[in-house]
Design a protein around this nucleic acid. Structure first.
Lengths: 220, 220
DNA sequence: TGATTTATTTACCATTTGGTACAAAATTAT
DNA sequence: ATAATTTTGTACCAAATGGTAAATAAATCA
């Protein structure tokens, strides 16, 4: 009997050690809010208002929680924004990374821009892309976040560029094409679409712009 | 003698009435700062920081003047921003209105985008276009300005559209072209270029994007 | 010279900002 | 039951926000 119990305890311990998932109930007062739901709510606020436009008071209100709980859980405003950003990339704009797996460069771009148009014009979402508009301009205290977002934009431009280089080796993109320039062109379109969405452009309107932008796709 | 003096006085009065320009020295203590220079300085601050990112303290500092003088002269922050906006339109981006006078739709767009690239990449200027980025996202207290800038963007899109309609009647743009869509496409490119400029894109890079965007200009 | 007019300066206002100290509440471990 | 641990709620902080009252300075008018 005691042997069985001991074995079970060992099992639980080793499981915990292996998976690194704590099954043991935490010691103190339990958290009153779901962390993922909170990030989702915070996303809505940061997405619609931008980094500086979102105040901690409004965030706390949206999460249905008091400020000290936010600080205890996420650190400070910058840290919360970064976690929200990760949530944003893993959720609403996960299609961006997935699009790179399309078989040809053209299909990559088509999927990337089409999904962007859908996201940007979805009335359930705040208007505009958070990576593009989260902190384009800002006060002296937010230049850090501003630069980080510039880095994110540079990054997806680079990812596109590398995908185009691959396409050149695979033959679905002409060898003479400048991958970096094509990537910057696509990024420019995407960023313009974001501004258009903020102005209330519909999905049809965004799609029409995309069609025009892709009419000059390099073929020969 | 007295007659001559009277005549002069009358002359002065009527001149003032006609031209509505007061030659008479103002009565109280003279202004300690030049109003146009002040607007120029304020433009630099609003241009680089956006509407919300620019604080009255920073503005006062840039103008080399105390806050009460700003309020006495321009009203409040919103009013100052609007005057700065007018200055911006009449100065740095005056080319936008001028571009509409180009003889063909293509040349209109070419001039508009080329001048935009020059302005956006000029190291003497803050990065990005103020109409595009002045208040893309903002806190609850600035939605008025945000909407006004959306209006400005809609407006230049409309101006482009009307110019394209004219071009269709003049024959330098095919009749089947959708002027509104083409205008939205050009506006999207311009807005994307603005974001790119904020990320540090060079004039050459912007021009390359423009070249790609205009490769599919409707010809037949 | 004064009286009047206007602008500047200083000092302040209420509100909001991001952030926190601290005590009370809610849970587990003993 | 009680100790230990953790989170919550209240109440607060200094600094910054947009904006202003009031005294003072500099000019014109009589």
């Amino acid at each position: 009997m005691s042997n069985i119990i001991d074995t079970e305890k060992l099992d639980e311990k080793s499981t915990k050690a292996l998976t690194n998932k704590v099954i043991v109930k935490p010691r103190g007062r339990p958290l009153a809010f779901n962390q993922e739901d909170a990030l989702e709510s915070a996303l809505q606020v940061f997405w619609s208002r931008g980094y500086e436009g979102a105040s901690m008071a409004e965030l706390a209100d949206a999460l249905g929680v008091n400020k000290p709980s936010i600080y205890a859980t996420f650190g400070n405003k910058e840290a919360l924004f970064r976690k929200v950003l990760a949530q944003y990339l893993a959720g609403p704009v996960a299609y961006a990374a997935e699009a790179m797996n399309e078989p040809t460069a053209y299909k990559v771009v088509e999927k990337f821009l089409t999904c962007s148009a859908a996201l940007l014009s979805n009335p359930d979402n705040p208007r505009g892309c958070m990576i593009v508009q989260g902190a384009l301009t800002c006060g002296q205290g937010s230049t850090m976040i501003q630069q980080e977002l510039i880095g994110y934009r540079k990054n997806y431009e680079n990812v596109l560029s590398q995908r185009f280089e691959l396409a050149k080796t695979q033959g679905d993109l002409p060898a003479h094409v400048n991958a970096k320039s094509l990537a910057k062109y696509i990024a420019t379109i995407h960023q313009g679409l974001s501004v258009q969405a903020t102005g209330g452009a519909s999905k049809d309107e965004l799609m029409t712009v995309i069609d025009m932008a892709l009419k000059n796709w390099p073929t020969t």
